[in-house]
Design a protein around this nucleic acid. Structure first.
Length: 262
DNA sequence: AAAGCTCGCAACCGCGTATAT
DNA sequence: GATATACGCGGTTGCGAGCTT
């Protein structure tokens, strides 16, 4: 016989996650890690499929996620990597610390694709489109940039890995502090998750190994203070007691490993 | 002010691959 | 080795927010 089923479909909840569910998931993962997604929902007291939990964690709750739109450098990197890798979003995401494959995929489909088409570049092949494509009436700043880009080569410049990573670091400034859709599920909780207060509370000591906090897009300099969202304060305890710390390290290590593999 | 439209994002679905039995 | 299932990835969809008329 093979493995046991992922989840019994009966009684499994779907749709948007509530603040309560987020809380349960984060608390559980920080306490126990996420060795087995199948068993996680049951153990964490969630009526969700393990798959759904994994998605929610990797795309939204992971503490090392950046928030907000991709900046120009990141966007350019995505374009370069897409030219090389195609729609392998996870590989592309591995090159952009704090960004998820889903986020990059969405950004590609909603922003970059349109930009490239407007520039007369086929977003699939990265080759120039046919000449009948009408140029934009009023070239914008972005258009100008991209025209410059397409002038330099018809097939887009492939940035070297070394350059990519260095430019990324240089662009990880305060503008990438996690903005977060704080108001979406539970304004109180989400705003706290992404607040300086929370970020300092959780003792991001896993960054100490030569990592700059800014690389992940948040500040660790502010002091902690009291707050009603007491469960988040548990983060600190988890860290101190070396519980969830490992799983946070895993997240970072995964990023680095993927980086090496690519 | 309200109805309709567009856009962006979170989440789901299905498939391929890896892995446990 | 065969089989069944978990996991991860990419494509797609549905819904809410913002914009336009």
């Amino acid at each position: 016989m093979g493995r046991q089923p992922c989840c019994d479909k009966l009684g499994v909840k779907k749709g948007p996650w509530t603040a309560e569910e987020d809380k349960k998931l984060v608390t559980f993962i920080l306490t126990n890690g996420h060795c087995c997604w199948r068993a996680l929902p049951k153990l964490a007291g969630l009526r969700r499929c393990g798959k759904s939990c994994r998605l929610r964690w990797t795309n939204y709750l992971r503490p090392d996620l950046k928030r907000g739109l991709l900046n120009e450098t990141e966007e350019q990197l995505v374009i370069d990597l897409h030219a090389r890798l195609g729609n392998r979003w996870s590989k592309i995401a591995a090159k952009l610390p704090g960004r998820t494959d889903n986020e990059i995929k969405n950004h590609w489909n909603t922003h970059i694709k349109k930009k490239l088409i407007k520039m007369g570049i086929d977003p699939v092949t990265h080759e120039p489109l046919h000449k009948h494509v009408t140029p934009p009436e009023k070239p914008t700043l972005v258009d100008t940039e991209h025209q410059e880009l397409s002038k330099t080569n018809d097939n887009l410049i492939i940035t070297s890995d070394a350059n990519s990573s260095s430019t990324l670091e240089n662009n990880s400034t305060d503008e990438h502090r996690p903005l977060g859709p704080a108001s979406e599920d539970d304004p109180l909780m989400m705003s706290y998750i992404w607040s300086d207060e929370f970020l300092s509370n959780v003792s991001w000591s896993f960054l100490a190994q030569g990592e700059e906090c800014s690389e992940l897009g948040f500040s660790s300099t502010t002091s902690s203070s009291e707050d009603g969202s007491s469960w988040w304060l548990d983060y600190e305890d988890f860290m101190n007691e070396d519980f969830g710390f490992n799983c946070l390290n895993e997240v970072k290590m995964e990023t680095l490993e993927n980086d090496d593999k690519l």
